[in-house]
Design a protein around this nucleic acid. Structure first.
Lengths: 204, 204
DNA sequence: ACATAATGCGAATATGTATTCGCATTCAAT
DNA sequence: ATTGAATGCGAATACATATTCGCATTATGT
């Protein structure tokens, strides 16, 4: 952020700009998101935009930060560890994932589709970190006997698998596969995989 | 394609343009791929480009078609069904996937990253279709007893999971996860999931 | 009330890039 | 050899859009 907003009105302006950015991305897609349009939607001039954001990317980065915080908060509110069995826990997590992706009228969807061009690190870290902690706690509680190796790899695989499978499904939206079928199958795959005890062969 | 190349030199020109498109995308990334640069690399003028391709997208589409054919041919050459157990078969398929993604100096990687903006249908159909046939044949041969429902969903999940997990891993390229660890774990997850007999409850 | 800083404006500027078009060259048929 | 079609050229055009900058307005402290 180029300059700190000090007065009330400018703080509101900054917020309006970030909100407008989300709205424009959601409505017109990332490719058609222009500074002019953002300013227009925010009810503000382009010039003012550049008072507080060095460039367009800065604005988008601010949006991503804000969303990362939202997701983090949402995750903390989920009582995933209270589930008795892993299947239920993973099912809840996947439901949460679908809920997020379908929320905000496709904003998240458009962002994930363009993950490669966006500063997604904060968001990804938030997710990965949370699920990593969750997995650690769960295994500590239920699988005390097994030495848990490979947990990073497993969480990495599972997170990406679920995320992108969901995104692809929502994106192409052919009616051939129903969303709850997909959720069920994803749950089965992930639960089955995570419950697998690690290899005992130390050959690698 | 706007006009059919009739003479030898123009057929070579079209080929040179498609090759150049691949090269530029691979070297500069899709975002920095300009018609001017493509023409330059092809050793041809921009004007000539528009003789045979209605627009830039047409050129890229031609490239995608060509790659879809390559992948299809590569898949047909793989003797996946000769593998005795599913684990070996899936391991081979995943190895093939990594090989493709790492081939052509990252061209495929860049294309998958930008799948959302590209005409990927042909390629995706090729993959999905092939794995679908493969799965059908395998189950017919080994699990004759089970009624195989849900196969579409399973193949969809597995294809997307593996593809995007691999892409994300190669993209971020943090040394924390080794490629062969990832391949092994992916194999375990997929094999475990595909070997699961379908639900017997007919409640859905 | 005044001075100064903060904020806000938007037409003008700068830049990048897809596409066109009139002319030049090469090919293939007679 | 001649001619018309096919091919090739690349400077010029059209357009979209990020960013700037000089000026106008508003807030804050004294």
């Amino acid at each position: 952020m180029r300059k700190r907003p000090q007065q009330q009105r400018s703080r509101e302006l900054v917020k309006a700009l970030i909100d407008a950015t989300a709205k424009v991305i959601q409505q017109q897609g990332l490719d058609n998101t222009t500074t002019a349009r953002i300013a227009e939607v925010a009810g503000v001039s382009v010039g003012s935009l550049y008072q507080y954001f060095g460039d367009k990317d800065g604005l988008i980065e601010a949006l991503m930060e804000s969303l990362a915080d939202d997701i983090g908060a949402g995750l903390k509110r989920l009582p995933l560890l209270d589930n008795v069995d892993m299947n239920a826990m993973i099912s809840s997590a996947i439901q949460f994932g679908f809920a997020v992706l379908n929320s905000r009228d496709g904003l998240y969807l458009e962002l994930v589709r363009n993950w490669h061009r966006l500063p997604t690190d904060r968001v990804v870290d938030t997710l990965q970190q949370h699920f990593m902690d969750l997995a650690r706690l769960y295994f500590l509680r239920h699988y005390r006997d097994y030495p848990i190796r490979n947990l990073e790899v497993r969480v990495f695989i599972v997170t990406n698998s679920v995320l992108f499978t969901m995104v692809r499904h929502i994106s192409q939206n052919n009616g051939l596969i129903r969303e709850d079928d997909l959720a069920n199958e994803l749950t089965r795959m992930v639960a089955g995989y995570m419950a697998t005890p690690p290899d005992h062969q130390g050959t690698r």
